[in-house]
Amino acid sequence: MTRTRASIRPPEASSIKDAVATLARPGPLEVLRGDLGIVGIPGILFAPAEGYGLPAVAFGHDWLQPADRYVDLLRHLASWGIVAAAPNSHRGLMPSHHAFAADLRSTLEVCAGVRLGDGHISVDARRTALAGHGLGGGAALMAAAGHPRVAAVVTLAPAYTHPGTLDAARAVTVPTLHIAAGKDTVTPPAGHAEPITAAAGGPVWLRTITKASHTGFLDGVHWSDLVLAGKPNAKVRALTRALVTAFLLTHLCGERRTEALVDGKISGTVLHHPAARVATA
């Protein structure tokens, strides 16, 4: 495989529908899996087999969820040239939100500060992002607030974390994408994603996947499925893969071919225009 300083460019697409289908499929790069435990943080990491100056994202899991339930998304991002890591800490009933945010920051520092893949993979610290689902989305905002180098933030069905989710959102001035689930009864958009979006301190997009539930973003089976409403959904995960990949390629890599998926009309979703703030409840 040829070493490259930038992530892979997606092919031209004749329509937004084709672009979604393309970015929902794995990219062309070979992917390696690693263990964050070797640097003192429990968790997993996926990266292209080779590449220098790559973008990277640290992803926070939802309440009770193991990081392995996001392997589908993490591996997918790596196949498109983005190093993706997820700490597996703070999975108890009463997790520390501040400590989880600190672990997300530490995960990014590891990605940017350590040569990966026997020295054949490196990350450009100026092209890093934070992301997360539910509780992990709130922790991602907390981790991004005031961070000197994070260039983008993505959340899936974000939840309030205490203290200070809205304060953190106000302090995040980089481009941020919130993906809400229209049938979410765990973190309903009106009480979570919408006020968080309204509080944003920088460019912000809120896109609702109309038929998604809170757990539609997950993969596999876990005992927590008994206490959380909804169930994993392959179609929701496929659409999420395309949306997250497009947003990160656009804002971490300056990729113009993916801009239509950030701002355009996409079937099965509703986009709240970034210029229009959502009223706080």
Results as ranks from 00 to 15, higher is better:
Met1Cys: 08
Thr2Leu: 11
Arg5Lys: 05
Ser7Met: 13
Pro10Asn: 13
Pro11Ile: 07
Pro11Val: 07
Pro11His: 06
Pro11Asn: 11
Ser15Asn: 08
Ser15Leu: 07
Ala19Arg: 07
Ala21Arg: 14
Pro26Leu: 03
Leu29Tyr: 02
Glu30Gln: 12
Arg33Cys: 02
Gly34Asp: 15
Asp35Tyr: 07
Ile38Glu: 15
Ile41Arg: 05
Ile41Asp: 00
Gly43Asn: 07
Leu45Arg: 09
Glu50Pro: 01
Tyr52Phe: 08
Gly53Asp: 15
Pro55Tyr: 11
Ala58Met: 06
Phe59Met: 04
Trp63Tyr: 06
Arg69Thr: 14
Val71Thr: 15
His76Ser: 01
Leu77Asp: 08
Gly81Gln: 05
Ile82Phe: 11
Pro87Met: 03
Ser89Gly: 13
Leu93Gly: 04
Met94Cys: 05
Met94Asn: 07
Ser96Lys: 06
Ala101Phe: 05
Ala101Ile: 02
Leu104Ser: 07
Leu104Asn: 05
Ser106Trp: 10
Ser106Asp: 13
Thr107Leu: 12
Val110Lys: 07
Val110Ile: 15
Ala112Glu: 14
Arg115Trp: 10
Leu116Lys: 13
Asp124Gln: 05
Arg127Thr: 09
Arg127Asn: 04
Ala143Met: 12
Ala145Glu: 10
His147Gln: 04
Pro148Gly: 08
Arg149Gln: 07
Ala159Phe: 07
Pro163Lys: 12
Pro163Thr: 04
Gly164Thr: 10
Thr165Gln: 10
Leu166Asn: 01
Ala169Gly: 01
Ala169Asn: 01
Ala169Ile: 06
Pro175Leu: 04
Thr176Trp: 14
Ala181Asp: 02
Lys183Ser: 09
Pro188Ser: 07
Pro189Thr: 00
Ala190Thr: 06
His192Glu: 13
Ala193Glu: 11
Ala193Thr: 10
Pro195Tyr: 04
Ile196Asn: 03
Ala198Asn: 03
Gly201Ser: 11
Gly201Val: 05
Gly202Gln: 06
Val204Ile: 15
Trp205Ile: 01
Leu206Gly: 03
Leu206Met: 11
Ile209Pro: 00
Lys211Leu: 06
His214Ala: 14
Thr215Gln: 00
Thr215Lys: 00
Asp219Leu: 00
His222Val: 13
His222Trp: 12
His222Asn: 14
Trp223Thr: 14
Ser224Asn: 05
Ala229Met: 06
Lys231Gln: 14
Pro232Phe: 07
Pro232Asp: 07
Asn233Thr: 12
Ala234Met: 07
Ala234Lys: 10
Val236His: 11
Arg237His: 02
Ala242Ile: 09
Val244Arg: 00
Ala246Gln: 04
Leu248His: 09
Leu248Gly: 05
Leu248Phe: 11
Leu249Ser: 01
Thr250Ile: 00
Gly254Cys: 14
Gly254Lys: 02
Glu255Trp: 09
Arg257Ala: 15
Glu259Ile: 12
Gly264Met: 06
Lys265Asn: 12
Gly268Gln: 09
Gly268Ser: 11
Gly268Tyr: 02
Leu271Pro: 05
Pro274Arg: 00
Pro274Gln: 00
Ala275Ser: 13
Arg277Thr: 13
Ala279Val: 06
Ala279Cys: 04
Ala281Asn: 12
